[in-house]
Amino acid sequence: MLEIKDLHVQFHTSDHEAVRGISLRVDDGEIMGLVGESGSGKSVTAMMIAGLLREDRVRTEGRILLDGRDMLAVDGDDLLSYQGKEIGVVFQEPMSALNPVMRIGPQVEESLRVHTKLSKEERRELALQAMRDVELDDVEEVYRKFPHELSGGMLQRVCIAAAIISRPRLLLADEPTTALDVTIQAQILELLKRLNRERDMSILFISHNLHVVRKLCTRVAVMQKGRIVEEGETEQVFHHPRDPYTQRLIAAIPTRRKIDE
């Protein structure tokens, strides 16, 4: 459903490319992992897919196809029509991804307000439903709260609810668990897995945490310095890494034996 073909991205303020010709494919209903260290270009790739980086900031080459439609070619109102409807995005820091002076409910509903003509009650009903879907408790109460009144884990659930409320076909998750502690992290991963299964929603999961990627993703691509150095089935890549960089990355995963030594 999502296909990236030979994408190059260069910021106007920089003298080298942040992304140097990557090709990537996300199939219907799969969870694709994109791993790499800081500065490898994985977040820039995500922002390009989401449509957050436009010509005023970057120079681009190549194509990003969503169901065969080139998204680098659309702009203005057309861009608004697929943002939030076809693609949902979850960020790393849930606290900063929410407007501090707006109540939770309206923020979850935001994409409905833009993309549909539903009445206030209908929107509210859908928002409460989405919040139940992400396993929040007391949704009626959470609906009325402000972001600072909730914990990090709850906020990330709220962000996921806001991202999936319009039933997008692709969820872009940019390090969604990095800012959370380990137990919450595991819960959010389970949640993403369940949403992927039940809603038949593809997920592009971006992370530097190989351990997490291995638990979640069916396929994985490894990025280094703006290039994809390896791509394949997750288990395949983990057991038989071909690229030396991938081999080093995997060797760096802490295991019990290494910690004991």
């Binding site: 989401a50 449509g51 957050l52 608004l80 029509s81 943002q83 939030g84 409807k85 693609i87 949902g88 995005v89 960020f91 820091e93 900063s96 991804a97 929410l98 407007n99 501090p100 002076v101 707006m102 935001e110 994409s111 833009v114 993309h115 962000c159 806001a162």
Partner: peptide, 27 residues
């Protein structure tokens, strides 16, 4: 800020972002 980015990602128009999302934050 990220909350503005997320609003933009959900398809909010520039006018809506300016006056509904940002303005109350600057009070």
């Amino acid at each position: 800020m990220n909350y503005v980015k997320s609003a933009r990602l959900m398809g909010a128009t520039d006018r809506r972002i300016m006056f509904v999302h940002i303005l109350p934050n600057t009070r």
